[in-house]
Design a protein around this nucleic acid. Structure first.
Lengths: 258, 258
DNA sequence: ACACGCCAATCTGTCGACACTTTATATGAA
DNA sequence: TTCATATAAAGTGTCGACAGATTGGCGTGT
């Protein structure tokens, strides 16, 4: 965030999107935006100013454009989005509720730096939620649903072949989203999405370990099989297994790499 | 930060608490306040104006002082709490995130009226979360923890003997809170609390069915036994069973009674 | 009596302002 | 130099105001 103590020539802030770094992945950013819209707007259609700001800023966090610990200055944001600080404040409160930022009273908001054990909790809670979703999916999935899931597995396999990490991640997210939809449990889906948000900033770490992507793909294909064969127990076990290995990979990568 | 420019005859709103109905249960209200503080403040100590308003208003909803569908007028609230509308708005956004009220843009906030199937989702999701907590509890509970749980079971039994429905509910909540603490999974505990909030307004309906309280008590005693004997599978099954029977009772009561 | 549409009153979202706090900078002592 | 302190700069929470949207009542026509 540029201090820019000089007079803020309005033209500098003409566009809402900030200057993006060289390796900025626009399509990945848009995916992040989409998820955020789903989580933040909940009750569909509420294209308010506040949610727009929250989505944009949240996507910047998820995409790593803002690093953990970075400050979120409400007056800078206000000038950037050309509004007053009131909507900014509301948007930041939304992001805090989603665990993407921390707000302490009278202090600037900061991009969240979740302790490692919280990450573990998130994965385990998400696994538990997804197990119940899986039960519903197994009992309700239609032929069309299964075809849809199969298509997403193909997309994941394609990304894996190309070793395209961001593509794989988002195809994976789509797969889980599809499961959530098939399960028809809106409450569970909302919580799962919310938890997903908090783990997305770390996704690179988790999947970058050698062989992790291939293993993940294999497990997901097995999940699809289990659903197809209406094997609830197996589906649940696979979902749990995948979450726990993802967590394990993440912890390992965090321990050695970064 | 008293501006004090307000009208001097503000004496009418001197106390923040509104006029309570004849059957107002102050101790129950305080219990509700406590839970709300835990959920809304998350990061401990943040006794801001906003959270205070949110807790007070949320407790009014939980205690049934505001019926589902009731309007929450921000200017009325502002005069009542002797502040401007800005903190009121923030507080209402907090309550919306907890599912206690619905806010549509440009429309007045209303006390939430969750559809029956959402209640079902909440119970099932909560059951899933508590099952994972139960696993942790079984493996980590110390002798002291078990003694604490036993004490809470006694309190529940006492309330059941006296047929004191509110006392039973809050003892029950304390029991679950104790389990959450023993489980040491803050993420799960936070979500469980949040889901609890949404079901509390309906608690009377669920427990008022004849025999329901006795059955609930029995199940909880069994849960304690399972924890004592480190029987994870049984503990999980009992927790799930209790949630599902509570849901069933609620649906039945809703179908016939109200 | 009812439906429809206009009007006034009310309420919401946003704004700029202000007092107080936190953070950064400059100053001085060891 | 380094540390502590004072002072300036910047930021946050809250306020009152305003424009536009929403609500509910009133009259008109059928």
């Amino acid at each position: 965030m540029e201090k820019n103590t000089a007079i803020p020539e309005a033209n500098l802030f003409e566009r809402v999107t900030r200057d993006r770094p060289r390796n900025f992945d626009a399509s990945s950013f848009d995916r992040a935006l989409l998820i955020l819209q789903r989580v933040l707007m909940e009750r569909y259609d509420r294209p308010s100013l506040v949610t727009k700001i929250a989505c944009e800023t949240g996507a910047e966090i998820i995409e790593g454009l803002r690093a953990p610990g970075d400050e979120l200055n409400s007056v800078d944001l206000a000038t950037r989005f050309k509004t007053s600080r009131t909507p900014i404040r509301d948007a930041l409160m939304l992001l805090e509720k989603e665990g993407l930022i921390d707000m302490l009273p009278r202090r600037r908001a900061r991009v969240a730096t979740p302790p490692i054990e919280e990450i573990g909790e998130i994965y385990r809670v998400r696994a538990a939620l997804f197990e119940t979703v899986a039960s519903d999916v197994v009992s309700r999935a239609t032929e069309d649903d299964i075809a849809l899931l199969a298509g997403l597995i193909d997309a994941m396999a394609d990304a894996e072949r190309r070793m395209a990490l961001p593509d794989y991640v988002w195809a994976n997210v789509e797969f889980y989203t599809a499961l959530s939809n098939i399960g028809r449990n809106r409450t569970a889906a909302r919580l799962i999405d919310s938890l997903l948000l908090r783990t997305l900033p770390h996704r690179r770490l988790s999947l970058s370990l050698p062989g992790r992507m291939a293993r993940s793909l294999k497990t997901h294909a097995q999940i699809l099989d289990a659903v197809t064969q209406r094997d609830e127990t197996l589906a649940r076990a696979l979902i749990r297994s995948n979450h726990l290995s993802a967590l394990e990979a993440l912890q390992k990568a965090a321990a050695e790499g970064h």
